[in-house]
Write a protein that binds this DNA or RNA. Structure first.
Lengths: 239, 239
DNA sequence: CTCACTGGTTTACACTGTAAGCCTGTGGGG
DNA sequence: CCCCACAGGCTTACAGTGTAAACCAGTGAG
């Protein structure tokens, strides 16, 4: 890179295209006009460039989708540490929610994208790290991730056993996880007896029991004031 | 209908096209070749007919998507009644899961479809009915639906305050709900103080507290044997 | 000076959903 | 019984999609 602008003569013509510039432009269009408005030609137009030029920076449109997802997730601000494991995860979940809420179309993108995002894995890795540090067993951590999946990022995904995606994707996922980049995930996966059905029912019962308990005694409704106001956007629906 | 085949002379040529036949064919293709393989021309081919003929039975491709979603959800077998509210909901959730598992691509369809499916509303109506019968307050029911949404059907959706879809969709949704067709939903919505953020955090904390509790004491793991085997398909991933 | 390469363009293609109009067999009304 | 409206098929056509392939201008290295 340094080598590129060695002589300091910045070509004043226009900002050169780049992968992230493409992604940024795509995000902008999606925010303004909806995700369906993001086409290669429209994207080119936005960047003052012909559609085909994009392919010098991006392999395909699918890669753009994946890139957007990864970029946005990677920009979830890190919640501050401190407190017990629950507070830590709570902070992460709220930060993610707040951040991604600005781009509601991204959930549709995530469920549509196949192949897993490094940023997403890092996010999970952090959450799992919190749990392990908090003393949850591997098994319990595993289950908790299942139950929480929709809460920590806003969408449900049987990440590792992608129903839809083929088995080769699952294999690749395992390889990636065991690459050393995601120590908490890898750690938590050891010696796990995984059964999708059991996980599901466990989480279901946990929730149901929680409400049954709440039904008697003082219903422990969260007060708005208890939520860290930094994470709260104004409710976007009045009624 | 009777009028149509009045003289009993069934035209032996071929089964006449119809809306549900189109939907059924689409489901079949999606199951075999993935949802992306479902194009109008492919669909026509499957039915031995030209693509444009489909438009005599279906308004658009989006309507096909919506139709499929509705059809599949409507075919979730009703779990038998009896037991407390938790058992009832448990049964419904497992039945839905088991049924929709056969068509994993449907979740992508659901999140992509806008406008709400009557069958989906009926499903929610049943679940909410279970809760009210079980003695949960309106407020608690409301919150419980939020927390459970991903569990009772397998996907997360802020149904009523669709982030992505416009506000006119939300308005239509309210109108539909108050049409009298979904008494439990309408009932449970009365006098509700809804705040998306509060709902979210409440559910989050409920889950976290559940696991904190599970961390000490005997971890109440569900045994596979406890699950009604009728609802269990063999795990579809060995590892 | 030249030569390879980077990063833009142009053209072209296969494939999508669907609008518009045509054609024909059939069932109901005169 | 005949006619005719029409349901339900077909044909053609079009605008818009992603992207392969070839082309071309500028530029930095040898």
């Amino acid at each position: 890179m340094k080598k590129l602008r060695r002589n300091g003569r910045r070509s004043a013509v226009r900002e050169p295209l780049s992968r992230v510039r493409v992604l940024r432009a795509a995000i902008e269009i999606a925010d303004r006009e909806g995700i369906d408005a993001v086409t290669m030609r429209r994207l080119g137009e936005e960047l003052g460039v012909e559609a085909m030029s994009l392919y010098h920076h991006v392999r395909s449109k699918d890669e753009i989708a994946a890139g957007i997802v990864d970029l946005l997730i990677s920009e979830i601000p890190a919640a501050e540490r401190g407190g017990d494991w629950r507070a830590a995860i709570r902070g992460r979940a709220l930060a993610a929610r707040e951040h991604l809420r600005k781009h509601p179309w991204v959930f549709r993108l995530i469920t549509g994208t196949q192949g897993l995002s490094p940023a997403l894995l890092r996010h999970y890795d952090s959450v799992i790290g919190d749990m392990l540090r908090g003393g949850l067993s591997h098994q319990l951590t595993h289950t908790a991730m299942h139950v929480l999946s929709s809460r920590t990022l806003g969408f449900t995904e049987d990440l590792f056993l992608g129903n839809d995606r083929g088995p080769e994707v699952v294999k690749a996922a395992f390889a990636e996880i065991n690459s050393g980049k995601y120590p908490a995930i890898a750690e938590s996966i050891k010696d796990i007896h995984h059964d999708d059905d059991v996980e599901f029912v466990y989480g279901l019962d946990l929730i149901l029991d929680g409400f049954e308990r709440a039904r008697h005694g003082p219903q422990p409704r969260s007060k708005k004031s208890e939520i860290d106001p930094r994470h709260l956007a104004k409710a976007h629906l009045e009624r």
